[in-house]
Amino acid sequence: MEPEDPFERLKSMPPRGHHALLGIYHVAAGADWAELACPFSAGFLMDAGSGLVSSGPVISLIDAAAGAAIIARTRRWEPMATLDLRVDYLRAARPECTLHARATCHRVTRRVAFTRCEVHDGDPANPVAFAAASFFFTSEP
């Protein structure tokens, strides 16, 4: 494990910004994928009374996991921006459950990276959401 590896650098960075607010943390990774998670918080609810979980944290966790999957695949530290993101909500997430997002980066071109992501709240066989997101590298050519 080389300390300068960009993915190791990503993993070792202390959470800041919105990652810190949601408590997003690294779970596992492979050559072209990354799994991140965030613990449930009462702030994720749409309605404190009904226990309905907002889909907003799901979007943010997907965005984070997809970005991490791209770095896992490219092993490059390149500034990038999300181009588009589509989420299919298969079912509502359950309250009190940690959300997991496992994203795979399927292809990287000079300018664009394509990812897909699955989200579950404890059982990978019973997913909460499927997503597809593309990113572009923002640095000048």
Binding site: G17, H18, P57, I59, S60, D63, L85
Partner: peptide
């Protein structure tokens, strides 16, 4: 600060969430 992604920019997931 709690809504920031890369330095100086709003987190993409936050923008998606506010649209929703």
């Amino acid at each position: 600060v709690a809504l920031e992604g890369r330095l100086g920019f709003l987190y993409g997931g936050v923008i998606g969430s506010v649209l929703e």
